[in-house]
Nucleic acid binder design. Structure first.
Lengths: 232, 232
DNA sequence: CAAGTATTCAAACGAGTTGTAGAATATCAG
DNA sequence: CTGATATTCTACAACTCGTTTGAATACTTG
């Protein structure tokens, strides 16, 4: 068996091989072709999570979440590891989030997506850029509020941010200082929680704005992050 | 009809709206879920082309190419315009190529894709970076050969490059100077033509290397390009 | 090793996608 | 208006994907 037909550079560039390569690329495309998988990617961009928690957040059955997560793993978008009785999934790398971002960038030009975004996120509101927020946190001129669920805060958050999940915001209003502007953030540019939080704070008479995007963008920009629950 | 249930910021962030938004994003994913559409995107990254030419290059029927191109258009990845009796398709923007690049980057970690790439492109060979090539062209220290089909050269090519389609390379060897290194390029990092060209030139006793990627990357890097056929 | 929890597998059905072939449409040149 | 060319539309069969359900497997704890 002397690799028949595989002479040096003799049969490269064949149509059959080209088809296989494009087939391989399209496998990754297939992984992005389902709304639940998009949502799971967005959730995993917040940090490592187990199947059951992901299923609950995405509002689907555990079995379905498991199937979709395996699809994402086959496409190289996520990886998993076992820890005792649970399996923890995480994004395969920054490439994977870059792909999701590129996908949403292209989609954001579509009429359907613009309509859906307007309905989900509400009217555009003034946002704070990452750079401005970083500078104002340094100078103590703003308080940063993480309105995501506590598990996501625990998996990683903007350095110095306080965890006040959206559901608890009204009840815990007294904890928040009244003399500085509040800046809320959540999962990313297509997450409504910070917009909801800011709208609520405005109704309660507070000065508040939202960060222009979310935790994944902050982390990928190399800005300071922390992990673990807030002890104070 | 006073927009019932659409009070200011009252019902944003609903699950139904979230689903619609993710559905919209996944529509773009669906467009990337077919190998023929990946190939069409790669071809369109070279420049504007008509349906029949794209069908021929991708080795599919005109009807099928038309259907896939319309799918890509619906996903916001390409646009089209009519010119007389033909319809010319082109990439919708640099975002679209960025998305294709991100997709291939993620895919390139997959075993299947690595195997397919190795088979299609052959053994890795030493490549010239864009920066090095730019410097050497300026100093006349290299001759750049565009081995893509003539239509793609005409739609846009590296400034100063000579069009020598792969099929004509052997016949037109005498036209190429023997005293400087030849640098071949083609459609991008997953195109085999430049590798085939370099392999052929080596067999014919010439000094040659390939550009690390292709024309789209050169153009997007802001390096000098030209359009139209070579008159000389 | 038995019970409990977390996750995956298997089967099944409906829905959507792909590719083919032939008809229909749009534009242009006489 | 007619014929030629380029593209799109329609209809259909083969195939793949998404989802649900219930059973099976893997690991931990007592």
């Amino acid at each position: 068996m002397q690799n028949p037909g595989h002479g040096p550079a003799a049969d490269i560039g064949t149509r059959a091989a080209k088809n296989e390569l494009q087939e391989a690329f399209s496998q990754v495309g297939k992984a992005l072709a389902n709304p639940h998988r998009i949502e799971l990617l967005d959730l995993l961009a917040q940090g490592e999570r187990q199947v059951e928690a992901l299923a609950a957040s995405a509002d689907i059955s555990v079995a379905l979440a498991s199937a979709h997560l395996q699809g994402l793993r086959r496409a190289g978008l996520v990886t998993s590891r076992r820890e005792g009785t649970r399996i923890l999934y995480r994004l395969a790398g920054d490439d994977a989030y870059a792909l999701l971002t590129a996908l949403r960038t292209v989609a954001s030009r579509l009429g359907d997506a613009q309509r859906a975004a307007a309905e989900y996120l509400g009217a555009p509101m003034e946002a704070v850029s990452r750079e401005e927020l970083f500078a104002r946190v340094r100078s103590g001129d703003a308080v940063v509020i993480d309105v995501r669920p506590p598990e996501e805060y625990a998996a990683g958050h903007i350095a110095g941010a306080v965890s006040v999940p959206l559901d608890d915001l009204e009840a815990r209003l007294a904890e928040l200082p009244a003399d500085v502007e509040l800046v809320a953030y959540c999962r990313g540019p297509y997450c409504a929680m910070s917009a909801q939080g800011v709208a609520l704070l405005h109704r309660l008479g507070r000065r508040a704005r939202r960060l222009e995007d979310g935790y994944p963008e902050w982390r990928l920009a190399g800005l300071p992050v922390e992990r673990g629950a807030k002890s104070s």
